[in-house]
Simulated scan of single mutants.
Amino acid sequence: MDLYRVLTTRDCTVCGAFFGGFLFLPSATRCCFPCFRTAEELRMLGTATFCKVTDVKMGEARPHIQEATLRTVPGRYVERPKHLIAVKEALEALTAHGVAFQQPPREPEILTAADARRSDALRKRHMACTALPWRGADAAQSESGVFCKGCFRGHVLRGMRERDRAPRERMFSLEGLLAHFTECGDAKAMWAESRNRHTPPPNMV
């Protein structure tokens, strides 16, 4: 029933702003891609790093954080640790059992500006997450989310870098996309252009 409840929840339960196309495995949390990449509550650390930043010995922590420890999802990674720890859930477990720990600094403070180290943190999140479609209790079929091509085109036309993927990371359900369309000038412009291309000349009507 817990998994069914997540399956039938449409939006990200972290921010509530976008379609949640992903499942964060340690806590069975439905999330959107922007939250998946940056939210502190979805942060993962290797076991050695977790003990280092919290100043807790693994022998002391292990009995209390088993439910926050994940065997990593197989995939193509530069390096795949066997286990990762969901930081939020682990800290809550240590608190509940009265284990003293040092509050870890926020992720940008642990990670330097070096791209390689920042991407390593993102890889750890990838190892703890999987795509999950949404299916409403009365829906005829499931949805995996769509993005707005109008937002993406406007993003590029305004000189944003191609590698800045923000418009493609904001996903919507079909219902959400229709609501978004009413306020997206770029999408309306694309729609108008499309209709004009497919309107026959007057003498062919």
Rank of each mutant, 00 (worst) to 15 (best):
Pro105Met: 00
Leu25Asp: 07
Ala100Gln: 11
Thr8Ile: 06
Asp138Met: 02
Val73Ser: 02
Glu41Asp: 12
Leu178Met: 14
Gln102Met: 05
Leu94Cys: 04
Pro133Ala: 02
Cys15Arg: 00
Ala48Ser: 14
Ala128Asp: 03
Asn196Leu: 15
Leu84Asn: 07
Leu178Val: 13
Ala86Met: 00
Lys124Cys: 07
Ser142Tyr: 15
Arg10Met: 13
Met171Cys: 08
Ala114Leu: 07
Thr72Asn: 03
Thr38Val: 11
Asp138Lys: 10
Cys129Val: 14
Val156Asn: 00
Ala48Asp: 13
Arg161Tyr: 12
Cys15Asn: 03
Pro200Gly: 05
Trp191Glu: 12
Ala17Glu: 15
Leu42Met: 04
Pro200Leu: 00
Pro108Glu: 04
Gly154Lys: 03
Cys184Thr: 00
Ala128Val: 07
Asp115Arg: 13
Asp11Ser: 10
Ile110Lys: 01
Asp186Phe: 09
Asp186Ala: 08
Arg80Met: 06
Arg106Trp: 14
Gly21Gln: 05
His198Lys: 08
Phe101Asp: 00
Ala139Ser: 05
Met44Trp: 10
Arg125Cys: 02
Glu79Lys: 04
Gln102Tyr: 10
Leu122Lys: 12
Ser173Met: 01
Gly98Glu: 08
Pro167Thr: 01
Lys188Asp: 08
Gly75Glu: 05
Arg43Tyr: 08
Cys31Glu: 10
Ala128Trp: 07
Glu40Gly: 08
His97Phe: 09
Ser142Met: 11
Arg10Leu: 15
Val78Met: 11
Glu175Gly: 14
Arg10Val: 11
Ala113Arg: 13
Leu174Gln: 07
Pro26Arg: 06
Thr130Arg: 13
Arg76Ile: 15
Asp2Pro: 12
Cys32Gln: 03
Leu132Trp: 06
Asp2Arg: 09
Pro63Glu: 04
Leu174Asp: 09
Met190Lys: 07
Glu162Phe: 10
Arg80Ser: 06
Trp191Asp: 15
Trp191Met: 13
Pro202Tyr: 10
Cys51Asn: 01
Ala39Gly: 06
Pro74Leu: 08
Gly98Asn: 04
Leu23Tyr: 05
